[in-house]
C-alpha cells in the first residue's frame, strides 16, 4: 500500500505517494526525474547515489523513501543556482576532476558535506571524506585537488 510522505528536496517541499519498497534513490530518479543522483552498485559500496539527508551524506540506495519522510534532502541539482554552477562544481571542472562524470554528483556531495562540517580539512580528512565514493576512471588526485582548492 502506498504511503504519503512529505519532505524537502533542494529547498522545495514535496508531498509524494510512494510504495514502501521504493528506495530514496529510485524515488528521486523515477518519480521526480532528479537523475543527477546515479545508481551504481545499489548496495552501498560505490557512493554514486550519495545525497545529503538532514545534513549527513548517505547512500540513497540504502534509504527507503518512506524513511525520508520529514527530512531535508540535498541532491546535486540543488547546488546550481540562477548564477550557474556552485564554486565547488566549478572547481571540479577547473581542475579536471570530471572524467566520465558518473561518480561526480556523489563525489561533489560528499565533498560538500565534508566542507560544510569542516571548512579547512587536512589532506587525510579530504581523502577520508571521499572514501565512500568510487571513481572507476581513478581520477582521485584531481578530485582531491578540486576539493583542496575549496577549503578555506
Amino acid at each position: 500500500m502506498k504511503k504519503i510522505i512529505r519532505l524537502t528536496i533542494n529547498n522545495q517541499s514535496h508531498e509524494i505517494a510512494v510504495e514502501p519498497n521504493l528506495t530514496l534513490a529510485d524515488m528521486l530518479r523515477y518519480q521526480l526525474a532528479l537523475t543527477g543522483t546515479k545508481k551504481g552498485c545499489d548496495t552501498g559500496d560505490c557512493g554514486a547515489c550519495t545525497v545529503i539527508m538532514d545534513g549527513n551524506a548517505v547512500n540513497s540506495c540504502l534509504v527507503l523513501a518512506v524513511q525520508a519522510n520529514g527530512s531535508v534532502i540535498e541532491t546535486i541539482e540543488g547546488l546550481t543556482t540562477a548564477e550557474g554552477l556552485a564554486p565547488l562544481q566549478e572547481a571540479f571542472v577547473e581542475k579536471g576532476a570530471i572524467q566520465c562524470g558518473f561518480c561526480s554528483p556523489g563525489m561533489i556531495l560528499s565533498a560538500k558535506n565534508l566542507l560544510d562540517k569542516n571548512p579547512n580539512p587536512s589532506e587525510q580528512e579530504i581523502r577520508e571524506g571521499i572514501s565512500g565514493n568510487l571513481c572507476r576512471c581513478t581520477g582521485y588526485q584531481k578530485i582531491f585537488e578540486a576539493i583542496e582548492s575549496q577549503s578555506s
Binding site: 552501498g44 557512493g47 550519495t50 539527508m53 549527513n56 551524506a57 548517505v58 547512500n59 540504502l62 534509504v63 560528499s110 577520508e128 571524506g129 572514501s131 565512500g132 565514493n133
Partner: peptide
C-alpha cells in the same frame, strides 16, 4: 566501519 556514508546510517 564501512564508509562515512554508511556510518551516517
Amino acid at each position: 566501519l564501512g564508509t562515512h556514508l554508511i556510518r551516517n546510517r
